[in-house]
Simulated assay, not measured.
Amino acid sequence: MTDTPSDTARTVLATEAAALTRLAEDLPADFDAVVSRILGIPGRVIVSGMGKSGHVANKIAATLASTGTPAQGVHPGEASHGDLGMITRNDAVILISNSGETRELADMIAYVTRFEIPLIAMTKRAGSTLARAADHLLLLPDAPEACALRMAPTTSTTLTMALGDALAVALMEARGFDRESYHAFHPGGTLGAQLLRISAVMHRDDALPTVTPDTPMGETLVVMSQKGFGVAAVVDGGRLTGVITDGDLRRNLDGLTTRTAGDVATPNPRSITPDALLTEALAEMNAHKISALMVTNQGQLVGLIHIHDLLRAGVA
């Protein structure tokens, strides 16, 4: 019976998963030494390979660079025509070749050997030209490719990319690369928005819809209308003591204008700190079905964040 496309997909994924398990169980012996070597260089990590390995090299370089380890991909063909000048004595070089005999890497191997630039090899053949020339060897399992011909780069590129991820994360943790550092490198798009602090987008000072506990509800309604958030913060001596929402107004319609803000407000309202992330504010709003959160610092009202702010930031 002929395999269906789904059968083929499952076989490919199982083959690659088994190889990744082997790699995790038998991590290259030089892995820790490579991390230490890279941490010790004053320059960048140059990553290169040919063909599919070249694509993986560029991905590894990009991941390293975005997680605190300066890195650059260099094409081996371009390197042979002048781009070797991009590599300095302050750098370390990672060369990727499944066989370890990729001809296009020869000039790069010769160059880093001549100038005593640290060379890290990613290959599955310990006795290959690349492995013998390297200062450090990240040896990959000799696992079968996942295609029916056992030739197309599939398992080998998956292993190489995964090992590159492992290296990037190990370096990231060794450098103490935290959320603030990550945001500095990822200011754009959804990732950047998710790492923004509430203090960066919250409304403050005169924009806040604040009233005191003894403010008549007639004046409170004017404040709520003018500020446009649909809420009012009840503040006593700078401290947030309550909040008035549209729901509070509906529950107190009978004789509303004869009451004060303190009579109508919901006491001990939910709030969030200015150093919390926008994603935390979104989770709080979703969990309690509210559209605005007061921002407090040790009980003092310092700001307000609305669901529309999260939408504009690209989080909601």
Rank of each mutant, 00 (worst) to 15 (best):
T241L: 14
R150P: 12
T258M: 12
R103V: 15
N286H: 12
V315E: 01
F185A: 06
A283R: 13
M1I: 06
A292L: 06
M122G: 12
S271F: 08
A146N: 10
V234A: 02
V47W: 04
V234W: 03
R312Q: 12
I38K: 01
T157I: 01
A174R: 07
D309I: 06
A71S: 15
S199I: 03
F229P: 00
A162C: 07
L130S: 12
I307G: 09
H308W: 08
V211F: 03
A287N: 03
I38V: 14
V222I: 11
R103S: 15
T260H: 13
I87P: 02
T296Q: 07
A276M: 04
A292D: 11
G218Q: 15
I109E: 07
D91E: 12
D107S: 14
L195W: 01
R179L: 15
R270E: 12
N268V: 05
E219T: 14
R251I: 09
E101T: 08
G73P: 02
G237D: 07
T158M: 03
N252W: 10
S97C: 14
P274S: 03
A62H: 02
D135I: 12
H183P: 00
G192I: 04
R125M: 13
V315Q: 07
L208Q: 09
I96Q: 14
A146D: 07
L119V: 11
G77M: 15
I117A: 14
H136N: 10
V35C: 05
G192V: 03
D142L: 05
E284T: 15
T273A: 14
R22F: 00
S291F: 06
P216E: 10
L137D: 00
L167V: 06
G299L: 07
T102G: 03
P187T: 01
T266M: 05
I109M: 15
L95K: 02
L221A: 11
A17W: 00
S225C: 06
R239I: 05
V223H: 07
M172V: 08
T11D: 01
G176A: 06
S199K: 06
